[in-house]
Design a binder for these strands. Structure first.
Lengths: 226, 226
DNA sequence: CGGCGGCTTGATCGGTCTCAAGTACGGTGG
DNA sequence: CCACCGTACTTGAGACCGATCAAGCCGCCG
């Protein structure tokens, strides 16, 4: 299986094996029934931009980033997908983002055509697909609002968001490196790092290693992320 | 016949006459129900954030802005809605943006509950609603990409987008004031104004009044907006 | 003709980027 | 267990782009 130990090239990997999942059309609750499990290793591409969108995915463990790159190499991370999240559902036939495993990732793979066919005759399934898209839209609009804020506000918002999605008491265990955070927030890695340091110095957070964050003053973070 | 139209990403080249969007005319006739016409005057609110989303709207003439404001007053325009576009469809029961008439606007108003009820028994209608949301999602993601670019790139992109949606040969007649453009692009009004001046000085565009733009060098704009 | 709102222009400020070292960490092999 | 390496992260100094503050200008409508 393809394993990129280094920053991925912009070329899409064509040599990955995608075993189509076996029968999944039989239930009326299509979106929660599980497809075939599949694992990807760190930085491995799950699919590339403008590749045919034949499958959709549900994260079992690990984290996935979807992103787009501009001609000059600037990268914008569109979303992080955590356990329980689905991704890869498109309206058209091609993916509009690339998707990569951040660390080791296990996903379940569903055949898009089967899901669409089901949606055509089951209004509940259809509604679920709509809901999934609508949620992503909300997220995208929130993201837009984020990008007009200051660096401090962006990182505060990010920490609160991650806390709410991963919460273990007052601690957050970030699955992604600083560069991913930077590309998600529209900042440079240096600015992100400085903001972490600034929050720590202000006792707003505590750091044990770069990925393990203790939220010491959630009220302050909340205020900043407004 | 009602077609659920959303802004499509601009395609460089080709002058098109005012867009009868391709692709979804084969909808069920049930969705052709036309709502009651209604007019709003300049800067009049059509609905507010977190109001109940009982209706959706289709622009007949004029232009509408949907936006959200942060606590400190910063405003982010989420989208401009031009003739043919629909807006106001939400997954939840409350609007997530405010909507205002930019100038004089005529819209047709549809009852949300009726559209949803229809979607529940008509898979074509259901699919159309999904498509509408999916297009908005695409737009939102493109918007996100926009916000990581430079001021020059943002304005170039904006002009190309408006051209593709309003195109009259090489001219664009902007329906919105500078402040709206600034709030859409995440810039200040001064920066937007300076960029217009810069483009004019470089003969990339021509200005007759502040709203009427002649695109003198679309190739340059396209290159910049990449 | 006068006033007002929308737009442009200028001067300066400041937040974030850029460029450049330097440091901590996790893995690997001796 | 340690030495080493590469990657991720932090820190610093300086430049730059867009924001801010402040006039001035234009067009429109009374």
């Amino acid at each position: 299986m393809l394993t990129l130990t280094q920053a991925k090239p912009f070329t899409s990997g064509s040599d990955r094996a995608v075993p189509p999942p076996a029968g999944l059309e039989n239930s009326s609750d299509a979106l929660s029934l599980m497809g075939a499990p599949m694992t990807f290793s760190r930085n491995e591409e799950i699919y590339g931009e403008s590749e045919p969108a034949d499958y959709l995915y549900k994260v079992v463990s690990g984290a996935v980033r979807t992103y787009r790159v501009l001609d000059d190499g600037r990268r914008q991370i569109i979303a992080f997908h955590l356990p329980g999240d689905m991704f890869g559902m498109e309206f058209g036939d091609a993916h509009r983002c690339s998707a990569e495993a951040i660390g080791s990732v296990t996903v379940r793979v569903l055949k898009r055509s089967a899901v669409l066919a089901l949606a055509d005759r089951d209004s509940d399934a259809s509604r679920q697909i709509w809901e999934m898209t609508a949620r992503e839209l909300q997220r995208a609009q929130d993201h837009t609002l984020l990008l007009i804020k200051t660096a401090e506000e962006r990182l505060a918002y990010f920490l609160m968001e991650m806390h709410s999605r991963l919460s273990a008491r007052n601690e957050v265990n970030l699955p992604m490196p600083r560069q991913d955070i930077a590309d998600y927030l529209g900042l440079t890695i240096e600015t992100v790092s400085r903001m972490f340091t600034q929050f720590e110095h202000a006792s707003t957070i505590g750091l044990s290693g770069s990925r393990r964050i203790v939220l010491r003053d959630r009220a302050a973070l909340n205020r900043l992320s407004a």
